[in-house]
Amino acid sequence: MANPLPVLVRLHLTGLRVLLVFTVVCGLAYPLLITGIAQLAFSHQANGSQLKQGGRVVGSDLLGQSFDLPKKNPADPNEQAQPDPRWFQPRPSAAGAGYDPTASGASNLGPNSADLLKAVQARRAAVAAFDGVAPGRVPPDALTASGSGLDRDISPAYAEEQVDRVAKARGLDPDRVRQLVADHRTGRTLGFLGDPRVDVLALNLALARQG
């Protein structure tokens, strides 16, 4: 018996059927299978590598956070957040108001952008004054925003540059803080992948444990 549908219609119906089959296979079965295995075998990672302090979840091991002083007037959206001297500070962030995972992203400012140049100069002056160091000592990662706006890492140079300020604000021995920074330094993976870095979040968590 001849098929009553025109060839072109039949062709599209075939396409639709293929699509539906693979929507079930690749779009439902596959991610659900992976989710199942992940939840069973790697539930820590699969659920966002949650970081706990005193039984309370304080963030994700992988996502950077802001370490600012509480706002004077929390209702005022125009009030600029001020960095808290008791914590190691992360890089500038373009994600929302800073380290906001609901708005991950970069500044997208070009290499010759006047806005970026102004921001870099302002940050250099602000960081130098805040940390009490010469402006020339402030390393590049302290002056530039990351691609995700959620970078939890800073360069070892930026971490060392902050030691004295943190030690003073917390009334700790600078050498002890310096040792803490050294303990949290990560080298290149396998010796050649990525850059040496310090995980600000882990470092601050260790700092909090010091009291």
């Binding site: 500044s107 400012l109 890492d153 990525g194 850059d195």
Partner: peptide
């Protein structure tokens, strides 16, 4: 001082 704008430290 480096092309770190928009790049991740890691």
């Amino acid at each position: 001082g480096a092309a770190t704008e928009g790049k991740e430290v890691r």
